[in-house]
């Protein structure tokens, strides 16, 4: 196997997957691949390796958190000779001279220029982005430029920033269910507070509560990272709660419950009455108020309509410990 050819093929594969090539790059690649059947073969094979990596059994390798911790620990030990710390590097040619290295140097300059532009253009950009919001009790579906859709829950607001390199959404308030069109070249990133949810093609729900952020994956996989926690990988049916201080462990969750709101339902499983009121009030202008603090320990399970309070009120009235008093603008619940 001609290592030189395979190294070149690898750099080209990485470049292609990293984003759109410039005109010169395209010409250079065209010339390279037309040079010989060995080039064609090396390119196809390296693309195959690229595609194979995500198919590895997840249980064979450490999770993101552990990988980062161990890689960091290693760099502390080898920091002086870091670029040569890899045994295989000795077998390779000098990476500095690859077209890839030059390309990435160019990219860094480009990124610098771009960040300057962004710094100056920021004020302008604030007005450029598309912002979608919903009022109390309102829900809407927004179709994004790439065909992905966002279902926006009641009292929610988000801003869409699509660029050539990524699809970014800022969830400014509330909750949304994202159905992401698969596109590995363009990561789909939902930013909410200091937490970032990243996906390629999947379905997931992000709920920005008062302090916490709840991410639930319906389909596929996403990576959740935040300022105060290492990235976590979530698979379908898993949920993570990021609090201002930390992030909980990833746990199994009922995706149907997390997305019940899209069917205009509220699903509670042993939820405290305060939580029920909080959720209910997201959808209704007629507020549910808990007058007795000791009711915090009263738990509710069941499915209720998020838009029609009748069922929930009837359920509360049926509880012997509770007294329900309704006015035109409020529903009061007290301990009997």
């Amino acid at each position: 196997m001609n290592v030189q050819i395979y190294a070149e093929a690898t750099d080209w594969v990485v470049k292609h997957r990293d984003g759109e090539l410039g005109t010169h790059e395209k010409k250079a690649f065209d010339a390279w691949v037309r040079e010989s059947p060995q080039h064609v073969r090396a390119y196809l094979e390296m693309s195959a390796v690229w595609e194979d990596v995500p198919s590895l059994d997840p249980s064979w390798n450490p999770d993101a958190e552990e990988l980062i911790a161990r890689a960091r620990a290693e760099s502390n030990v080898f920091s002086v000779e870091m670029p040569n710390a890899d045994a295989p590097a000795r077998e390779h040619r000098d990476m500095q001279r690859t077209p890839g290295a030059r390309y990435f140097q160019a990219k860094v300059l480009y990124a610098l220029a771009a960040s300057l532009l962004i710094a100056f253009g920021c004020g302008w950009l604030l007005f450029q982005r598309d912002v979608y919001s919903t009022g109390t009790g309102e829900q809407r579906v927004v179709t994004l430029p790439d065909g992905s859709t966002v279902e926006l829950n009641s009292r929610s607001r988000l801003a869409v920033h699509y660029s050539q390199h990524e699809r970014r959404i800022d969830l400014l308030q509330g909750q949304a269910l994202f159905r992401v069109e698969r596109n590995v070249a363009l990561p789909f990133i939902v930013q909410t507070g200091s937490t970032q949810v990243r996906a390629v093609g999947t379905q997931f729900d992000v709920y920005r509560k008062t302090d916490d952020i709840v991410v639930t994956v319906v389909e596929g996989r996403v990576a959740v990272s935040s300022a105060n926690a290492l990235p976590n990988m979530l698979a379908a049916g898993e949920q993570i709660i990021v609090t201002p201080a930390t992030a909980t462990a990833v746990k199994r969750a009922d995706a149907a419950a997390a997305t019940a709101w899209t069917r205009r339902n509220l699903m509670f499983d042993e939820s405290p009455l305060t939580e029920v009121a909080f959720e209910f009030n997201r959808y209704n202008t007629r507020k549910l108020l808990i007058d007795s603090p000791e009711l915090a320990n009263f738990h509710v399970s069941g499915i209720f309509s998020s838009v029609d309070p009748t069922l929930l009120v009837r359920f509360l009235r049926a509880q012997p410990e509770l007294v329900v008093r309704e006015t035109s603008s409020e529903i009061h619940v007290q301990k009997r």
Partner: peptide, 21 residues
């Protein structure tokens, strides 16, 4: 990992190539 983007790209190329080798 506390490395540059360019360095991360190099590690990526290196890792892929090694897997093929």
């Amino acid at each position: 990992l506390g490395i540059s983007r360019a360095m991360a790209a190099k590690y990526l190329s290196k890792a892929l190539l090694h897997c093929r080798q």
